[in-house]
Design a protein around this nucleic acid. Structure first.
Length: 223
DNA sequence: CACATGATCGCCT
DNA sequence: GGCGATCATGTGG
């Protein structure tokens, strides 16, 4: 049966990872309290790691989007909107915010900033050395592959036995910047350059394209 | 490759 | 009652 009922709540076996292959640097609370676009960039190359029944699973993050809270018409917390679903966004940085969408998918966010400032980074795609790229390409499939569901919303990525972030940042020029996907309803905010991806990575959900990509735009032509 | 559409349901109004 | 931070599939060029 399709829909949320068929969504696994545990990671796929293919996403198991040897601890020795993970970056050593574990993200602490401070990392998540920084400006959201900076956190978003630094999450590229990082691993989201999940311990499930004593075994480590995870994926390397290759594509993200920043959502800037009350002033961002694309964000669920736009205008200070606050409902039970959105509540984790108002918590301190470093927690998960997971929401269901279209009756059949979940999207996972990393909450940023201090408590009361409802901003977050959407994880749009990842990769894993032993898994086909298609498994982790796109926010819905990323969640499915790692078994992330609504019950995970609000869980802490810091000091938790279950989830953590291992940092291995990509250096500046290796990052593409473009407009966010699927937020056409957001007025001017839909054009904000808040989507970040690792340049040329085959796991990126939609190649930044046709003038949307700031990094790939032909230089020397002012607008 | 570029669009267009249907699936399916929790969440908010 | 309407819609969405998506995905798979289908059509046409």
């Amino acid at each position: 049966m399709p829909g949320f009922g068929s969504h696994p709540k545990r990671p796929l076996d293919a996403l198991a990872i040897e601890p020795a292959l993970l970056p050593a640097r574990v993200a602490r609370r401070e990392f998540f309290l920084d400006a959201t676009d900076r956190v978003a960039r630094r999450l590229l190359g990082a691993w989201l790691v999940r311990r499930w029944r004593g075994i480590l699973y995870g994926a390397r993050i290759v594509e993200v989007e920043a959502y800037l809270g009350e002033k961002d018409a694309a964000a669920h917390s736009f205008g200070g909107r606050r409902t039970p679903r959105i509540a984790p966004m108002y918590g301190p940085g470093g927690r998960l915010y997971v929401f269901p969408i279209y009756g059949m998918h979940y999207c996972a966010n990393v909450v940023t900033r201090r408590e009361g400032v409802p901003q977050a980074v959407l994880i749009r795609a990842g990769e894993h050395p032993a898994a086909p790229a298609a498994l982790l390409r796109g926010p819905g499939r990323f969640c499915r592959a790692l078994g992330i569901v609504k019950a995970d919303s609000g869980k802490d990525l810091v000091g938790s036995a279950e989830f953590e972030i291992r940092l291995d940042p990509v250096r500046g020029r290796g990052i593409d910047i473009s407009e966010r996907i699927g937020v056409d309803y957001a007025g001017e905010a839909r054009k904000w350059p808040l989507r970040f991806s690792i340049s040329g990575n085959p796991a990126v959900s939609r190649a930044p394209g046709r003038g949307l990509s700031i990094r790939s735009r032909h230089p020397g032509r002012a607008s």
